[in-house]
């Protein structure tokens, strides 16, 4: 009986091909790097509340003081304005201000969301610093 000669490759493959495994691992790592910021909280940075001081400031700069009232009204530098008017006036005032600081104070029963909306608006219109003011009790 004639023996069939076994075919042999000149270069036998050595070990396993890990390319696909490495590709999957690399894809997972990239996916991880891309998605990790989504798990972190985003936020608006604020200067924590200070107590209102009496007397004028030494530095003369254009002031942007916003006061929110319980009934929904907004005071911009002591004058009542609508939200629409506030969006128009804020960029003008901030453009003339050196510090571009917006100070926000509220009455006792203002919802937190309203304050964040105004903070967000101020930031959008170019505010450099956002400060929350707490009235002295």
């Amino acid at each position: 009986m004639r023996k069939r000669k076994r075919l042999r490759f000149e270069h036998e493959p050595q070990g396993l091909i890990l390319n696909s495994l490495v590709d999957i691992a690399l894809s997972l790592v990239i996916g991880f790097i891309v998605t990790i910021p989504l798990f972190f909280e985003s936020g608006i940075f604020v200067n924590a509340p200070g107590v209102a001081k009496a007397g004028a400031s030494d530095v003369s700069d254009i002031k942007v003081n916003i006061h929110l009232l319980d009934d929904g009204a907004i005071l911009l530098n002591e004058e009542i304005v609508t939200y629409q008017r506030l969006t128009e006036l804020l960029p003008e005032l901030l453009a003339r201000s050196v510090e571009r600081k917006v100070i926000i104070s509220t009455e006792a029963h203002v919802r937190y969301e309203r304050v964040i909306t105004v903070l967000d608006l101020a930031k959008q219109k170019g505010a450099g610093q956002l400060a929350l003011l707490r009235s002295r009790r």
Binding site: P49, T106, A108, Y112, E113, R114, V115, R134
Partner: peptide, 18 residues
């Protein structure tokens, strides 16, 4: 980071911030 519900009173959040 202060995570406060949008419907809470701002004064309560101010107390926390202070």
């Amino acid at each position: 980071i202060v995570r406060a519900d949008k419907d809470v009173l701002h004064n309560d959040v101010l107390e926390i911030l202070a």
